[in-house]
């Protein structure tokens, strides 16, 4: 009887290990996002649930593993979309930071953002996040999208990406779609198998890769 009662109670008494094992499947573990923090940080996030170390110490090294369940189940979205969207804020901040850090001389320009990604829905979200990140950097940002003539598009879409972006940038400047007081930050997914985004800058007809 005691043995069976112990089996019933023990799983609740120990710390719930996020690793796969007897009580947690691999699939369930993959749904968790875990981070190890200090007891003080953990107590700030979860007051009442995590005890802080005593002022004079308690003779043990303690840390807190905080695990949060991912909002969406695995396989609900395409793998590339999932990889990009899971770290969307980090991607956007990285690109905005690169733009500001590598080209501080463009601080007074108005920034336009353009995204090249297979999914239009994800593309819109990437552009949204990047614009917000640029505004957070204190830059002037516009919602305007530069356009090209159909002849330019016919030619550019037949070129490989390494050539196409510089040509498009030059044409933006030549046609006036991108003014001298404006800079274009292009966020690009070059290969559907990669889980990173690239950033390119178009400034007065000159194209350069930033990230």
């Amino acid at each position: 009887m005691i043995f069976w009662l112990s089996l019933l109670i023990l799983p609740y008494k120990g710390a719930q290990d996020p690793a796969p094992g007897l009580l947690r499947s691999k699939r369930a573990s993959r749904r968790l996002e875990c981070a190890r923090v200090s007891p003080e940080t953990g107590s700030q996030s979860y007051p009442g649930q995590i005890e802080m170390a005593r002022p004079r110490g308690d003779y043990v090294e303690r840390s807190v593993m905080i695990c949060r369940e991912r909002l969406l189940r695995p396989d609900l979205r395409a793998p590339q979309d999932e990889a990009i969207l899971s770290d969307l804020d980090a991607h956007a901040v990285a690109m905005a930071s690169a733009a500001e850090a590598l080209r501080p001389d463009l601080g007074e320009r108005t920034w336009l953002v353009e995204t090249h990604y297979p999914s239009a829905q994800v593309s819109a979200k990437v552009a949204f996040a990047t614009k917000n990140a640029l505004v957070r950097q204190g830059l002037k940002v516009s919602d305007r999208t530069p356009v090209l003539a159909v002849g330019d598009v016919e030619v550019i879409t037949r070129m490989d990406p390494e050539s196409a972006y510089p040509v498009a940038c030059r044409r933006y400047a030549e046609t006036g779609a991108l003014g001298p007081d404006q800079a274009l930050l292009a966020v690009v997914s070059l290969d559907p198998r990669e889980t990173i985004l690239h950033a390119g800058l178009c400034d007065r007809g000159t194209w350069s890769w930033l990230h």
Binding site: R68, R70, L85, L88, A124, K131, V135, S142
Partner: peptide
Amino acid sequence: DVEAEGAWLVLRARITQLTPELPIVWSH
């Protein structure tokens, strides 16, 4: 825009002035 980023739900908002240059006047 509301997006599920891992374990976080993130809301982004921006306000754009509807003038020809479409400046973003506020974002959060």
